[in-house]
Amino acid sequence: MEIARPTDLAGVLDALDADPAATLLAGGTDLMVEVTYGGRRPASVVALRRVDELATWEGRTIGSGVTWARIEHGPVRALAQAARTVGSPQIRSAGTIGGNLGTASPAGDGLPFLAAVDASVVLASTAGRRTLRWDEFLTGPKQNALQPGEVIVGVELPEHLPERQEFAKIGARNAMVISVASACLVREAGGATRIALGSVGPTPVRARRAEEMISAEPSPSPAAVAEFGRLVAEEVSPITDHRSTAEYRRHASGVLARRLLERCL
């Protein structure tokens, strides 16, 4: 197995240019499980941990190599709440936000926040940079728009983030668990509201009809809150698997939507 260990972004891009099919390794919290239990045997690896440029967080640009441990204690409330639910302390010290995007699991804990705020993903290759909105980048379960030769540089948050933002995640135990359903809701003082849910569709799901309905309510009545929950439950498209049932996930999506909205009022 070939391993490239570049120390700057240019080195990463050169390595990928030479071997576009190389597997990218950051925290390794997904990849090493695939290697150990999934029988994956990458022919070549580009290791990213030595690249400081990827691990920087400046203003609204979060480098792909920023770990969940940093995000957990960072300034963005709902993203920090999501970060706290990622694995164990050891996993959070290794795993990165770029890994969440690279793996593109429907259960990725950081993804509902990125979807709720309409974040963008910055990609680079020797051919240059491009920026894709989250829903252009996440194309399906464990599928994304990353092309051979490209690396995820980071995430770009919008210039303005709503102050009111809340995240919650359901699992069958109280910590260190893969999401059965999760949700992130952000709301402007004027009422504009967005909600994205995880583990209830092939990619994070924005409940746009529910958003439209509740955004028009500057001070929603209990009936409006309930209607919002009902609409969210309608808009998700969950499946039944060994972790939960579609019916429960749909139900839980509505409950989480109501509760997060109430926390943001």
């Binding site: 639910t85 995240f167 919650a168 995640k169 359901i170 109280n174 989480l256």
Partner: peptide, 16 residues
């Protein structure tokens, strides 16, 4: 909140 149902997932408040 970590000692409520849902724990670190912040699903639940004491009122629930």
């Amino acid at each position: 909140p970590r000692h409520l149902p849902g724990g670190a997932g912040l699903t639940t408040t004491a009122a629930d």
